[in-house]
Design a protein around this nucleic acid. Structure first.
Length: 463
DNA sequence: TGAAATGTTGGGGCG
DNA sequence: ACGCCCCAACATTTC
């Protein structure tokens, strides 16, 4: 028997999947078997990224169900990719391996090694535009978002979404497979392509129209909450882009159009940071800008811990951090506020925050996460200038005006009235008693005073 | 995809 | 009618 491998990495879907499409063509042409393969590589796992790992496992189970409906099944192996592929290639006379290109340094190195020994075909599917196709006229990569996005939009659309197959060649019956352990699903984010498509539909039929403003409101569901699905390719970026563009073409209201355009821009931000990582893999180890590689960071285990656990005494920071801890996701506005707080107010190295986020975000992706952190720290490409320091109280008042979001995640504050919800330490003892919340006991006092912390950060960055 | 400090303007109160 | 002050409301600059 001869076979073709569809090597699944972060493209857990059958709709609009160029790697699957390529594998099907190759299998059909010669009547070969098709092996849908996922390799769990322990080296790829962040030490504490259990929530994301479970989301992936649930996604693999969902994919397996889809494959079984098409007459196939998912094969899962655990170990070193090259070793496993070598063995399969030999055992099942594999003629070709199709996979979607990944741009992380680890994946690039792994794939180039494999390509030296095995017939690995890499196709573009993780992004709409391959990082090598968006370059300045002198051939160097963009390091500023706006010109990058203009160039991105100027390139004609290369391909339209590919249809999902309606049947698949069976995979060899005797192939050994690691059992997918039963996983507890994440109730906030059910894994799988079906759920991803449902969310995209819902988002495109409502929230996206007011996304320009709505995306900033932490107390409302104004965002797409699609990031975990894009992270694992349960949703194709090409498909998301096309559907958003279709909605845009049928929308004439200025506000609604700007909402759609803003969301499309977010897809481009994702590709911007993937491109940055592709061209500058060193960003995972150091600041993009050399002049910010020697900031005199503080090391305070206690402060870092308070930040991680959502016990800083600043409600908007703590609510966001608890949202991350308990749901595996954080609102984008929350990401900016908590990141600014760690890096500027606590003056703790952005890499500690990057690591914590990677350990807890379902959508944790090296490119976007690193890009976001370096943006906030002011050390990255097209980054916020170092003196741009978020005031957590003002941010809270602006983006959670009634404190509903805060109360949802910090039960200790549920009886605190609106006028104090953003800065509960201002309550006098009577008011604290009335709110059933003693500051310093039921809910922590602020671990830093923002005004002083701001001055300290400005001084450190100037130096 | 900031916030604070500083500067400018203009209306209103008042002598 | 006028000058002066206060201060809110913006605008600009600075961090």
């Amino acid at each position: 028997m001869q076979a073709i491998i569809w090597w699944i990495r972060r493209d857990l879907r059958i709709g609009d999947n160029p790697a699957l499409y390529g594998a099907i063509q190759a299998a059909l042409a010669n009547g070969r078997a098709l092996i849908p393969l996922f390799i769990e590589d322990p080296k790829l796992w962040h030490a504490t990224a259990t929530p994301r790992q479970q989301f992936l496992h649930a996604g693999l189970q969902a994919l397996n169900q889809q494959l079984q409906l098409l007459g196939s099944r998912l094969v899962v192996c655990r170990g070193d990719a090259l070793a496993i592929l070598k063995q399969l290639v030999e055992e099942y006379s594999v003629h070709a391996i199709y996979a979607e290109e990944d741009y992380s340094p680890y994946a690039q190195q792994r794939d180039s090694r494999i390509r030296n020994e095995l017939p690995l075909h890499l196709v573009t599917g993780l992004v709409v535009r391959h990082p090598l196709t968006i370059l300045k006229s002198d051939g160097t990569p963009y390091t500023v978002f706006t010109p990058f996005s203009k160039a991105w939009k100027a390139v004609p659309i290369k391909r339209i979404p590919l249809p999902a197959p309606d049947s698949l060649a069976p995979s060899p019956a005797d192939i050994s497979c690691v059992d997918l352990a039963a996983v507890q699903g994440n109730s906030n984010f059910p894994a799988g392509e079906t759920e991803a498509n449902k969310r995209l539909e819902n988002f495109l039929h409502g929230p996206i129209l007011s996304y320009a403003e709505g995306r900033n409101r932490m107390d409302l569901d104004g965002t797409s909450s699609l990031s975990p699905y894009l992270r694992f390719g349960m949703l194709s970026a090409v498909q998301a882009y096309h559907q958003a563009q279709n909605v845009l073409n049928q929308t004439f209201d200025t506000t609604e159009r700007s909402g759609i355009e803003t969301w499309i821009n977010e897809l481009i931000w994702r590709e911007f940071y993937l491109s940055i990582l592709y061209h500058f893999p060193n960003v995972l180890k150091e600041a993009f800008q050399p002049k910010y590689r020697n900031i005199p960071w503080r090391t305070s285990q206690a402060d870092l811990h308070a930040w991680q656990q959502g016990c800083t005494g600043y409600p908007i920071v703590d609510a966001s951090m608890r949202q991350l801890l308990h749901s595996g996701w954080m609102h984008n506005r929350g990401r900016m506020i908590t990141a600014s707080f760690l890096v500027k107010d606590l003056l703790i190295n952005w890499q500690a925050g990057e690591d914590w986020f990677m350990g807890h975000l379902l959508d944790g992706d090296p490119a976007s996460n690193n890009g976001g952190w370096q943006w906030t720290a002011g050390t990255g490409t097209d980054a916020a200038p170092y003196f741009r320091i978020f005031n957590p109280i003002l941010q809270s008042k602006k983006f959670d005006p009634l404190g509903d979001f805060i109360r949802r995640w910090i039960p200790e504050l549920k009886n605190v009235p609106v006028r104090y919800i953003h800065e509960p330490w201002l309550m006098n003892p009577q008011e604290q008693a009335a709110a059933n919340c003693t500051i310093g006991k039921d809910y922590p006092s602020p671990i830093v005073e923002h005004g002083a912390a701001r001055e300290r950060a400005l001084q450190a960055y100037r130096a």
